[in-house]
Design a protein around this nucleic acid. Structure first.
Lengths: 142, 142
DNA sequence: ATCTACATTATAATAATTCTAAACTATTGA
DNA sequence: TCAATAGTTTAGAATTATTATAATGTAGAT
C-alpha cells in the first residue's frame, strides 16, 4: 500500500510542506490501529529507534506543535510534569493509570453525557472532559 | 483572634515544624473566605508583596510540596505549561477560563454525579474529575 | 534551473524546578 | 537552661524541558 501518499496529502491539506521529517513523524503517529498517547520524549525515542536517519529534537518540537495547531494532535493535561499528546483529537474522556502513567481513551459509551448546571456569564463552554484516575486495586491482591 | 495558633497546630499535626516561613505561607493560603488557586509564581509574588521579610524561592517550592504531601494542598493539571495548586483538597470539578487563565471551583450541585460504565481490570478508581473549559462568548458581543 | 519562502539543524538561551551544602532553628532531654 | 541533633532555610549551582537563533538545506513555483 502506498501509505505515504496519504500523509503527503494530509500535510498538504494543512498547508504544511511534506518534508521527509514530517512524513516520518506521520508514519510513527498515524500508522496505528489505536490512538496513540505520547510525550515528546517518547516520540524522540521511538523515532530514533525505528528510523535509520536521525531527526533533530527541535524538529520534533516544531512538528508536534505544527500538528497541534492544525488539529492533527491534541495536548492532554494530566500531569503538570509531563506534556502528553493524543492522536485522537476529538473531545473525549480518559483513564489515567497512576501506576504505569498510561493514558487510556474512553469511548462515548463509557461515560454518560455530563450535565453542567452552572453558567458563567458571558462565557460559553468550549469542552467538558473527564479524567478518571485509576491505580492497582490492592484489595484483590490479598 | 489568635489565628496563628491554628496554623501552628495544623503544621504540628502533619509533623511539620512550625517555622516562621511555614506560618507565613499558611496565612497567605488559608486566611481566606474562598478556596485559592495559584501557581508557585503567584505565591512568591504575593508573599514578597504582603510580607516585609523575604522568603527563598526554594522554601516556597519545598513548603508547597510538603503541604501537598500532607494533604493541605492539591495539584491541579489544566495546562502543561503551568502547575496550579488548590487549597480545596477534596475531589471536585473545575471551570477553567481560557481568557483569563483563572480556575473556578464547582460545587457538588453544579455537575451531576458521573457514571463510569467501564472497568479496568485489577484497577480501582481513585478519582473522577471534570474540567470545563470556558471562554468569552463572542456571539453575545454583537 | 533558479528563486523564494519555508524547514531543519545544532547550538545557545530561557524558564521552571530540583539539588547542594552551609548556616540556621525548633525540639529534645540532660 | 543549654547543648545536641535532626529538620529547615537559603543562595546559588545544576538539571530539565522548552524555545529561540541563525546558518544551511529543500519543496514548490516560475
Amino acid at each position: 500500500m502506498p501509505k505515504n501518499c496519504n500523509f503527503i496529502e494530509k500535510l498538504r491539506e494543512a498547508g504544511l510542506r511534506p518534508t521527509k521529517q514530517r512524513i516520518k513523524m506521520c508514519e510513527v503517529l498515524y500508522n496505528r490501529e489505536k490512538t496513540f498517547h505520547f510525550t515528546i520524549n517518547d516520540l524522540v525515542k521511538i523515532i530514533s529507534e525505528k528510523m535509520n536517519e536521525k531527526i533533530s529534537l527541535a524538529t520534533v518540537y516544531n512538528t508536534v506543535h505544527a500538528f497541534e495547531k492544525k488539529g492533527y494532535l491534541k495536548e492532554i493535561s494530566i500531569d503538570s510534569h509531563k506534556s502528553y499528546f493524543d492522536t485522537n483529537t476529538s473531545a473525549h474522556h480518559h483513564f489515567f493509570d497512576e501506576d504505569t502513567h498510561e493514558l487510556i481513551d474512553c469511548d462515548e459509551s463509557d461515560i454518560d453525557k455530563i450535565n453542567i448546571r452552572k453558567n458563567i456569564k458571558g462565557k460559553k463552554i468550549n469542552s467538558v472532559e473527564v479524567l478518571v484516575r485509576v491505580a492497582s486495586d490492592n484489595q484483590t491482591q490479598k
